[in-house]
């Protein structure tokens, strides 16, 4: 092995070691691990809420609004998957995880309702306005806000910023 190769191998080994060390130090396998999915879920439900607002004001198009709602549903799915793979070590962690899963389920349901309401046409075939499509949005907005409040409450209780 030449000198330059030895140097390269040593540098790579040092980087891998440092990476391992940092990843070990970065997160304790506790409630900290729930922070990621919780923040992802909070961001998703707030995005959906803002989108519904913008659609109610007729600022967002139906295509853009449904795309956003679809994206947020995928985000919620990813957050739920992370949470389901979280191995709770104590009774408190188990309880926190279960409470969070229940709220995630509520959020996913409200996101589905939001997506369906946003996808509903707001223009009737004759050129008028289809009030049924728009009428669903305030109710959906209420659902999203209630879910946001529940999640915020739990995050505060768990000490997640």
């Amino acid at each position: 092995m030449t000198r330059s190769r030895k140097l390269l191998a040593a540098t790579l080994a040092a980087l891998v070691f440092l990476g391992g060390l940092l990843s070990g130090c970065a997160q304790s396998p506790s409630a900290d691990s729930l922070k990621g999915p919780a923040k992802e879920a909070a961001s998703a439900v707030r995005t959906a809420s803002l989108t519904v607002d913008l659609r109610l004001q007729e600022r967002a198009t139906a295509a853009a609004a449904t795309t956003t709602a679809d994206d947020m549903l995928k985000g919620m799915q990813s957050a739920t998957d992370q949470l389901e793979h979280f191995g709770a070590k104590t009774q408190d962690e188990q309880s926190l995880r279960d409470s969070m899963l229940a709220i995630f389920s509520t959020i996913s349901r409200s996101l589905l309702h939001a997506r369906d309401a946003l996808a509903a046409p707001t223009s009737a075939p004759g050129g008028g306005t289809d009030l049924a499509g728009i009428a669903q949005l305030p109710a959906v907005q209420g659902e999203l806000r209630a879910a946001t409040e529940q999640l915020d409450e739990l995050m505060t209780k768990a000490g997640i910023q």
């Binding site: 707030r46 803002l50 913008l54 956003t68 994206d71 985000g75």
Partner: peptide, 13 residues
């Protein structure tokens, strides 16, 4: 609003 961008649709909001 507490929204972290993870999608292009959020960039447009």
């Amino acid at each position: 609003a507490g929204i972290s961008v993870t999608t292009l649709s959020q960039v447009a909001l």
